[in-house]
Design a protein around this nucleic acid. Structure first.
Length: 571
RNA sequence: UGGGAUGUAGCCAAGCGGUUAAGGCACGGGACUUUGACUCCCGCAUUCGCAGGUUCGAAUCCUGCCAUCCCAGCCA
């Protein structure tokens, strides 16, 4: 192996190496700062991989910090969930912090800004503030309360804290520049009055710091050197720097922004995910169709697959939408070498072998993995009646159909070669059963098995078959339509809703995102496995046993299907 | 119409003035195959949003234009 010099893998690492080389920092410290208002999704994992990955690469540490400054949206169940998710991924944080543990210190820093004359209490209503903020093209105008004395501001701010004023009646603002072309710099709010029960501080506080005040200070307090965040915070950087500088920190952290992850046919906004859960479009945050980590875990994705995916996606500043096929590829690659194989017939078609004695049972040894003999073998049984996949039989097959059809032969994996002699149909003409004959000399492993046969099918004997529920998934959103027919966007005055796209994302939900198959038949190993167990169901994909399983009815989620060039060719 | 950012193949993404523009996914072709899987070969941008300019030489520098994203929460 040749020596490999450490190279910056992306622009963030380039910046860091420049900083290190220039002596601006002599170490690297990062942080992952979620708000505990929901579960982590794969978009967060991109940030996680960057924050933890960079700290590790440069011999530094990464903190986990909860930015819990808005008690109306946060809950400790999310704190627990996020911690569990990060551990599941295999990351280890250095220090664990809560912004709320620093409310006292933040309050003192705010008082310091007031004393410096760069923060003031504003009595304007939210409506007045909005009106006076100006627009993107017009400057704002100063608040009539902007030039209060330091003493009055100090007094008012303390009384805000003491609960003397109703919610929303006053705020603490930074005194910067109401005419700034960057709207965020037009005297941003630093503190608001909010009576809400906080998951950690309870009712101790009735004023809470805003993100733009808390976040940079918390970074500085923790000694973060590089504060990595997504692109939408780019405009906040001047304010971030302003706050840290005004607070007098000597070693200001450097904020660097990168593009967040988007995936095709995937909902990634926390607000929409919440809506899917609350309105019952999915069964919960861990519904396997969700992009959350709890859902991916339940579906059968592994931490390695997810991290590999993010490594392949890379880090850059261009807005992008990554093809979900890349994620699936990473999942298959991670599972392919590991998962034992077994057979499951999702949509059974009964096969009766005319030349096989009624009560004769052959015991067969089959490999658990084609490339890993150390994974051993298992025993399955072959009898007169067995089941194959409905889609593996066609009465009038097209060219290149290598499966079963009248008069044709096919190999049953690990067993015998059979030929279809006749077809049984119901009144409506549907094929309900096949009569086949076995080549008795073709038992797997024997001399007679050593001949070319068009196709090899998976199967389960009636003797072995255990009923199973199988759940198949597709992306939660429909494929993008070529033309986005714009729906009229109602002029709504609610800022909260203004972010909603013209077209309701609910109308884009894929009606086929979940298919439940109740009549599947599987081998005993599959039925008896523990929840969370993974198998490759031969030719059908990777599957993971769901916690909904009962002793009477195992339930499996399809993690991802196998590639299927036949299905593709048929489209 | 203000400010901040971004534009390299179907999708990501290297490239940082000097021979034929990395790599992955997707896609197409072939080999192998008791999984139409896996694996293995081969192919896949005369061109870097567009137009000019500088230069012996430009995806890389300059100018202009176009497109897209972000910002007017007492959310983060």
């Amino acid at each position: 192996m040749q020596t490999e010099e450490r190279r910056a893998a992306n622009f963030i690492e380039e910046f860091i190496e420049e900083d290190l080389a220039a002596g601006r920092y002599d170490h690297v410290k990062t942080r992952f700062p979620p708000e505990p208002n929901g579960f982590l999704h794969i978009g967060h994992v991109k940030a996680l991989c960057i924050d933890f990955g960079i700290a590790q690469k440069y011999g530094g540490k990464c903190n986990l910090r909860f930015d819990d400054t808005n008690p109306t949206k946060e809950d400790s169940v999310f704190v627990d969930g996020i911690e569990a998710d990060i551990k599941w991924l295999g990351f280890e944080w250095d220090e664990l912090h809560f912004a709320s543990d620093f409310f006292g210190r933040l309050y003192e820093i705010a008082r310091g800004l007031i004393k410096k004359g760069v923060a003031y209490v504003d009595d304007q209503s939210p409506e007045q503030m909005r009106a006076n903020r100006g627009t993107l093209t017009q400057p704002g105008v100063d608040s009539p309360y902007r030039n209060r004395s330091v003493e009055e501001n100090l007094d008012l701010f303390e009384r805000m804290k003491n609960g003397e004023f109703p919610d929303g009646s006053r705020v603490l603002r930074a005194k910067i520049d109401m005419a700034s072309p960057n709207v965020l710099m037009r005297d941003p709010t630093l503190y608001r009055i909010l009576r809400a029960h906080h998951h950690k501080t309870g009712d101790e506080w009735c004023i809470y710091p805003m993100y733009d005040f808390q976040h940079p200070l918390q970074d500085a307090i923790e000694g973060v050197t590089h504060s990595l965040c997504s692109l939408e915070y780019e405009i906040h950087r001047p304010l971030y720097d302003w706050v840290v500088r005004q607070a007098g920190f000597e070693h200001p952290p450097r904020q660097i922004e990168f593009a967040r992850l988007n995936l095709t046919r995937t909902v990634m906004s926390k607000r929409y995910l919440r809506r899917l859960v609350e309105e019952g479009y999915v069964s919960g945050w861990d519904d396997p169709r969700m992009p959350t980590l709890v859902a991916m875990k339940r579906r059968g994705y592994t931490p390695e697959a997810i991290k590999d995916f993010l490594a392949r996606v890379g880090v850059a500043k261009a807005d992008s939408v990554v093809d979900g096929a890349l994620l699936e590829h990473c999942v298959r690659e991670a599972l392919g070498g590991e998962c034992p194989r077994a057979m499951a017939v999702l949509n059974p078609l009964k096969v009766t072998l005319s030349n096989w004695p009624e009560d004769k049972l052959d015991s067969l040894r089959v490999e658990n993995h084609p490339d890993r003999p150390e994974l051993g073998e298992r025993e399955i049984h072959f009898g007169r009646v067995l089941y194959i996949e409905k889609e593996d039989f066609m009465e009038d097959p097209p060219k290149k159909f290598f499966r079963l059809s009248p008069g044709r032969e096919v190999r049953l994996k690990g067993a015998y070669i059979i030929r279809c002699d006749s077809v049984v149909k119901d009144e409506s003409g549907q094929v309900t059963e096949l009569n086949c004959s076995v080549d008795l000399d073709s038992r797997s492993g024997s001399e007679g098995a050593n001949r070319k046969v068009k196709g090899t099918l998976h199967w389960v004997s009636e003797y072995d078959a255990v009923p199973c529920e199988v759940r198949l998934y597709e992306p939660i959103l429909n494929a993008d339509e070529p033309e986005d027919a714009p729906e009229a966007a109602p002029d709504d005055e609610f800022a909260e809703e203004a972010a909603a796209p013209a077209r309701d994302f609910i109308s884009r939900l894929n009606p086929n995102s979940l298919t439940v198959i109740r009549g599947a038949l599987v081998e005993p190993v599959i039925a008896q496995a523990e929840n969370g167990s993974r198998f490759q169901f031969l030719r059908m994909g990777y599957f993971c046993k769901d916690p909904d399983s009962t002793p009477a009815m195992p339930v499996y989620n399809r993690t991802v299907p196998l590639k299927d060039s036949w299905a593709k060719a048929n489209k």
